[in-house]
Design a protein around this nucleic acid. Structure first.
Lengths: 206, 206, 206, 206
DNA sequence: TATGAATGAGCATTCATTCAT
DNA sequence: TATGAATGAATGCTCATTCAT
């Protein structure tokens, strides 16, 4: 019995993942608006109705699809930031990790961009249900920056704003990489971090 | 006849602008997805069919509406950057101008964010028509940074990437201002520019 | 201009009536549940979307379709009951009128039966919007009976209950007429009224 | 073997009854339209597929559920009418029995009303299968009235029509009782029967 | 026999686009 | 040129029915 239970759970899990992957493909290809239930079902090779066995409604499915990306992002952020290191090292590791992850999972980046802003403002109403998931990594980064400031490694700046600035700036670069020639990852990460830490000004020292 | 021709052209122009302004209002209020042709027509006080006399289709109308914002942005950018000034002054002026403009025209910012990525990639097909308009201000900023680099005011960094990073970072801050308490504009501009020019590191000198 | 206005109003009115008639046909043929928007549109020879130009939603359309029947019923009831007459005459006229109307408009009767009970109890929620329309003729009849009682023409019975009993009893007979041989209308009306007034008992006094 | 056969038959019978009772609950609560197979299966504590082992399809299940009510009704009618009594006593007993039964089994009444007209005529097609079940109690009442007429206890009226009239009239009153204040059962029964037997007219004899 | 995951036709509703006036 | 009634394809979602286990 437990075996059957397990098997069933596995199959169910597998189906769920198949659907989420299909949703991911479609969102990456067509954007949030273009990801119709029919398109996702077709991509997953199941019937439209099946989607509703695993997700309450379209919003729920999209939310969970986004969750994949944001959870992964958060996990990587956590791993990187939990190691005690000087700020410069941490940020470098952060950017490198992101570059690596998104370079190799371009779909994820597209989904990130497509779902980041939770659709149209009007669509709200009771929604806003779990829009927080899209900001958790910002909060974590923000907390880290606050600590770095406390340690005296960083100027005293509003950490939330810096995190936002940093995150969106990097995301833009990542997206740009998808559409054209891009330098090697290590170099890209290095100049970004250097720019952030030391600024654009040519005069350093003296 | 030429007079009539001119008058006609003026009237036509006026209508066009009325429609574009209406589209701008609606997009700012409802988002891209919520900006139905009916809603725009109502806002403009014309019939739905009339929209099609001035714009090929919905996509065309939205594209041109975005153009308004981007043209305005470009004009301001041009004004600011054409004055010969040290890099730090130019950037500060740039950020201040943007803050000022978008703070007082929140609509424009919302439209900018809503249309920046040309909607869903699926909308493509034959499209991709004029997506470049959304990058012209980036190109101009990029050129300016290249010159600054040549003048030795800035480190040698890929100007296109820096422009992108800068632009999206600032946009994120701007959007954030719309949803909560925000510091005074001058301060906001100053820390952003300081961060950009001198970096996050606490050690300045020695 | 007024002419055009009028013409437009006429056309609109005509369309509306066409749709209502189509809905009536379909409800009579398929019942409330079977009256899908598609079926009604097909019957009316218009596109599905057109229905929504004239009615807010399916419920609204069905409500108005029912309204046709109930308004007609109420009008006839009013006409008959407003003439001052002894109770027996009034009831006889009432039943005759109903028989006549429904015999010649069998569709109306079917619609009456289909819409009388306002759908499923669960379907409610905010509904119940105008369910009263289905009871107005009962109220009128009830009022009339109350007056007759006051005039001493009738025993003192709860007029609401008698009205209900009478109405449903007659409706059942009417429906029965649709499916088989039926006596002439005058006879039918007469025995019903006689039964009501004098009862089933054979002893008509000594 | 016969024992096993019997046991099996009993179990099967029990299952069937469980399902029918569940269907009854659900129809009473949600109405015909709201009685989905899933809802019935849940109520019965079996799987959706199981329902199809005992009933050909939804229509079949609903039909048999209605059968429960009509059989019960028929049984009570039979019991009451088989006792030799004067017409007035029989009718009074009939109405009292009905009031009692339906007052205490409001579910039955709701199901009776929901299924009385076999749902939408469209459900037909090959159907029309067993719609007669809904008329058996009418036939029995009709037969009784015919006998009463033959015995000279009643005027000579088409017994089928009177039965119909009586039955629907009473049903309407019963339904009305469910939604509001209702007089005591005995009084209700008495005025109905008095009205039927002696009519509405105030003057009974001189 | 019993299950319930999967199916897909069907439904109400929206909205970009067309075209007769 | 301007209109807005009409269209019908497309969408999210439900649910009766089937069938592999």
């Amino acid at each position: 019995m437990p075996v059957n239970e397990t098997k069933r759970a596995l199959v169910e899990h597998y189906r769920r993942d198949t659907i989420l992957a299909a949703a991911r493909h479609v969102i990456a290809r067509q954007g949030r608006g273009g990801a119709s239930m029919q398109a996702i079902a077709d991509e997953a090779g199941v019937a439209k109705g099946t989607l509703y066995l695993y997700f309450r409604d379209r919003d729920d499915l999209l939310q969970h699809t986004g969750g994949l990306v944001f959870d992964e992002l958060l996990a990587r952020l956590t791993t990187v930031l939990e190691e005690a290191r000087p700020l410069s090292e941490s940020l470098r590791a952060l950017v490198r990790t992101n570059l690596e992850f998104f370079d190799e999972n371009q779909e994820f980046l597209r989904v990130y961009m497509a779902l980041r802003h939770a659709g149209d403002p009007a669509a709200s109403r009771r929604r806003r249900r779990k829009a927080k998931q899209y900001t958790r990594h910002l909060e974590m980064l923000s907390r880290y920056l606050a600590e770095a400031t406390a340690r005296g490694e960083m100027k005293a700046l509003d950490p939330e704003r810096v995190a936002l600035f940093f995150s969106e700036g990097v995301a833009a670069i990542l997206l740009h990489r998808l559409e054209g020639t891009a330098p090697a990852r290590a170099e890209e990460a290095d100049w970004i971090v250097d720019m952030l830490l030391n600024g654009l000004c040519s005069r350093r020292d003296s």
